[in-house]
Simulated scan of single mutants.
Amino acid sequence: MQSNTFYNELLTDHNLHPAHKKKLEDANLVLEGVNPSCGDDIILELKEENGIIVDGAFVGSGCAISQASVDMMLDLVIGRSKEEALKLASLFSRMIKGEATGDELEPLEEAMSLEDISKMPARVKCAVLGWHTMEDLLGEKDIKE
């Protein structure tokens, strides 16, 4: 497990300097994701070609956890197939529910740093907003909180 300092540094960096927070002019998949309980609101934009997510971005507002989580997610899924992206979303969801731990989480890379959110029930919806929006956008939302 990573230290709280590492978690805080990654969360802060992705929140203050998100690589993917911008408008994606040539997106061919766009969906809004809203967390009504806290007001997080994102518009996720993906460009998919031949089953591969070739680019992605988001705009919107929300807490540091929601914004950092969607930015980390886009780092992971750009360049991957739809199926790979959905597998990562499933793994992330299992991690946030406390059902996946340890080495099993390595494919999540930096997003593993959000593992302790599973111990903060009020923040779970923040962390999964981008991931669930991507699942809806890719047409396979079969994971429930």
Results as ranks from 00 to 15, higher is better:
3 S>G: 13
3 S>A: 02
4 N>P: 05
5 T>F: 10
6 F>H: 13
6 F>A: 14
7 Y>N: 05
8 N>S: 09
8 N>C: 03
8 N>G: 02
9 E>R: 08
9 E>H: 12
9 E>N: 13
10 L>Y: 10
11 L>V: 06
12 T>M: 05
12 T>S: 11
13 D>S: 06
13 D>N: 13
14 H>Q: 12
15 N>Y: 15
15 N>K: 09
15 N>Q: 09
16 L>E: 15
16 L>D: 14
17 H>N: 15
18 P>F: 00
19 A>S: 15
20 H>G: 09
20 H>E: 09
21 K>I: 05
21 K>L: 06
21 K>W: 03
22 K>P: 04
22 K>N: 10
23 K>V: 06
26 D>S: 11
28 N>R: 06
28 N>M: 12
29 L>I: 11
29 L>C: 07
30 V>W: 04
31 L>W: 06
31 L>Q: 07
33 G>R: 10
34 V>Q: 01
34 V>Y: 10
37 S>C: 09
38 C>V: 08
41 D>R: 15
42 I>V: 13
43 I>L: 09
43 I>M: 05
44 L>S: 02
46 L>C: 11
47 K>N: 11
47 K>I: 07
49 E>W: 02
51 G>A: 02
51 G>V: 06
53 I>F: 08
55 D>Q: 06
55 D>F: 02
56 G>M: 03
57 A>W: 03
57 A>P: 14
58 F>K: 09
60 G>T: 02
62 G>H: 13
63 C>Q: 13
64 A>K: 14
64 A>S: 15
66 S>C: 04
69 S>G: 09
69 S>A: 15
69 S>C: 09
70 V>E: 04
70 V>R: 08
71 D>V: 03
71 D>T: 06
72 M>F: 11
72 M>Y: 12
73 M>K: 05
73 M>Q: 02
73 M>E: 02
74 L>N: 03
75 D>A: 03
76 L>R: 01
77 V>Q: 01
77 V>W: 00
77 V>R: 00
79 G>Q: 03
79 G>L: 04
79 G>A: 07
80 R>H: 12
80 R>W: 11
80 R>P: 11
80 R>C: 10
84 E>I: 07
85 A>N: 01
87 K>G: 02
89 A>L: 08
91 L>E: 05
91 L>C: 02
91 L>K: 04
92 F>M: 12
92 F>I: 04
92 F>Y: 14
93 S>N: 06
94 R>H: 12
96 I>R: 07
99 E>C: 12
100 A>P: 12
101 T>F: 14
101 T>R: 15
103 D>K: 10
104 E>A: 15
105 L>R: 11
106 E>G: 01
106 E>A: 11
107 P>H: 08
113 S>G: 14
115 E>N: 10
117 I>G: 11
119 K>Q: 15
120 M>P: 07
120 M>K: 15
121 P>K: 06
121 P>G: 08
121 P>R: 10
122 A>V: 06
123 R>P: 13
125 K>Y: 05
126 C>S: 05
127 A>W: 11
128 V>C: 04
128 V>N: 00
129 L>N: 02
132 H>W: 11
132 H>E: 07
136 D>F: 11
136 D>C: 10
137 L>T: 01
138 L>I: 01
139 G>P: 14
139 G>L: 06
140 E>R: 04
142 D>A: 05
142 D>C: 00
143 I>E: 07
143 I>V: 12
143 I>C: 00
143 I>S: 08
144 K>M: 04
145 E>V: 07
